[in-house]
Computed example of a mutant assay.
Amino acid sequence: MADKTVDQVEKTEQRLYGLWKKSNDRTVSKDIKALSEAYRVAVAQVDTVLPFFVLSQNYNAQTRDFELFIGSVYERDGLETLTLPAGIYARMTVRPWLKCLWGPAIGAAKRFFYTHCLPGSPYEAMNMEYECHTEKSLGRHPEIELFFAVEKKAVL
């Protein structure tokens, strides 16, 4: 489950290399699995690539479609680039009860952030979020960090 703590971090620009795919709330689990496999083939890596990023952006609430990116910091021919912008990010740590429950744990953390943390805060979402998997994702008590791009709300 998600640690209910959300903190704010200032991040510098970071370049990632990976693959993009259009996705949807209904197909995201299958899409992440397929895109992750395609990424591993593209980088000729059978084992886990770390750090590993799963990013979504440009979510459309009406159609529930978004852009999905899978990648890492390792440049390889044939991969597309993504630049994570410098700025303010909200950060949450997710620790599923079991490794096979990553999807539900991440979904619960995202719902908590958007329904409990963001409303009433001085920030608004910038429609870009990502998971960062590191060595901490692999152990007996796995965890990942979720990052949500945010900015100060405009003062009227």
Rank of each mutant, 00 (worst) to 15 (best):
S23D: 02
T27M: 01
Y123M: 10
G120M: 11
Y123E: 05
L68P: 04
S23T: 09
Q57V: 00
L146R: 09
Y114G: 01
K153N: 01
G139I: 06
E135W: 08
L146A: 09
P104K: 06
H133S: 09
G139Q: 05
V46P: 00
T5A: 12
P119G: 03
A105I: 02
E124Y: 08
I32T: 10
T93H: 03
D47A: 15
K30W: 00
K99T: 01
G139T: 02
T48L: 09
Q62M: 03
A61S: 14
K99G: 06
G18W: 04
N24D: 14
Q14P: 00
P119I: 07
I32M: 13
Y17V: 04
V150W: 00
C132N: 07
L146Q: 10
D25Y: 06
F69Y: 09
Y114H: 14
Q8S: 11
V43E: 05
G18F: 05
E10A: 14
Y59K: 02
R15G: 01
E10C: 08
K22C: 01
C117R: 09
L98Q: 13
A108F: 05
L68I: 07
A61R: 11
G71R: 08
F112Q: 08
I106Y: 04
G78P: 07
V94Q: 09
S29A: 15
Q57L: 11
M92L: 13
V54I: 14
Q14A: 10
T81D: 12
L98R: 14
I88E: 11
Y123T: 08
I32L: 12
V49W: 01
E151F: 00
K30L: 13
R26H: 07
E37Q: 11
R40A: 14
S36N: 13
N127M: 04
R26F: 00
G78E: 09
Q62S: 13
T81N: 11
K99A: 13
A34C: 00
I70G: 07
F69S: 03
S36F: 02
V73Q: 13
D77G: 08
T115W: 05
A125M: 08
E143G: 00
K22T: 13
R64A: 15
A108I: 06
V155E: 15
R95M: 12
E143D: 09
T83P: 02
K99L: 01
Y114D: 02
I106D: 03
E124N: 03
F147K: 08
D31C: 00
E143R: 13
